[in-house]
Design a protein around this nucleic acid. Structure first.
Lengths: 108, 108
DNA sequence: ACCATTTACCTAGATTATCTAGGTCTACTT
DNA sequence: AAGTAGACCTAGATAATCTAGGTAAATGGT
């Protein structure tokens, strides 16, 4: 209940977004989100991997085994066409909701 | 999974915020959030009432029975001092996280 | 040659928030 | 008298995230 440094419901959006820059393995996805958010957002592995499976089942991403920059085996994920569409949808939904919350915070 | 028109984890913030303008009964809290967000955010009653209890137990709000504008019995909630502090904390947390997400969306 | 650390993935179970879908009661309207 | 709207309540389902473990391979230090 305390230090939830990830806003529930935004994980898919974040993953899709960092994958839009090109394929990445799971570990690197979490790193990217952490770094790009300037250490504000932390994705726990126990959240990440199940999320990747869900998204793979939905056809938004595809996986392929390969080798990481550090020479270890790693599963690389890349966006599918559906994933790209989903990203667009989620970005729009985020904008809409974040703006709406902003309005409430401004006007109450 | 589809039309979640409320971002998980933001309900407390929204409730505290609309109460910062003065006491309101539960039904009116939901209305206010809906109206102020220009119909984007909808709080279901099954989410609202349990949330109000949680917040009351935490000492952020206090309840008192009274009469609504329409002449029906209604439970009015008002912010406590702790609630005001909590609101400040949650606003800050929201700003921080929303900004961080924005950075990821901009830079990936 | 050995051991610790880092990298990378995986999973079961707990927790928690929200929603669904019911319900009650009362005032007002027709 | 009946129907609708206002206002509250709750049990159970759903689903996302976290906790806290675990495996295995490559690197680095001694």
């Amino acid at each position: 209940m305390e230090k939830t440094e990830l806003l529930s419901g935004t994980l898919d959006l974040l993953v899709l977004q960092v994958l839009s820059g090109g394929p990445l393995h799971g570990f690197a996805i979490a790193e990217q989100i952490h770094v790009l958010s300037r250490d504000v957002l932390t994705v726990e592995e126990g959240s990440l991997y199940p999320a990747l499976y869900r998204m793979e089942e939905k056809g938004w991403i595809e996986a392929e085994w390969g080798q990481s920059e550090k020479g270890r085996r790693a599963k690389f994920y890349r966006l599918t066409k559906e994933g790209r569409q989903q990203l667009a949808n989620e970005r729009q939904a985020w904008d809409r909701v974040a703006l709406a919350i902003g309005e409430v915070l401004r006007n109450a």
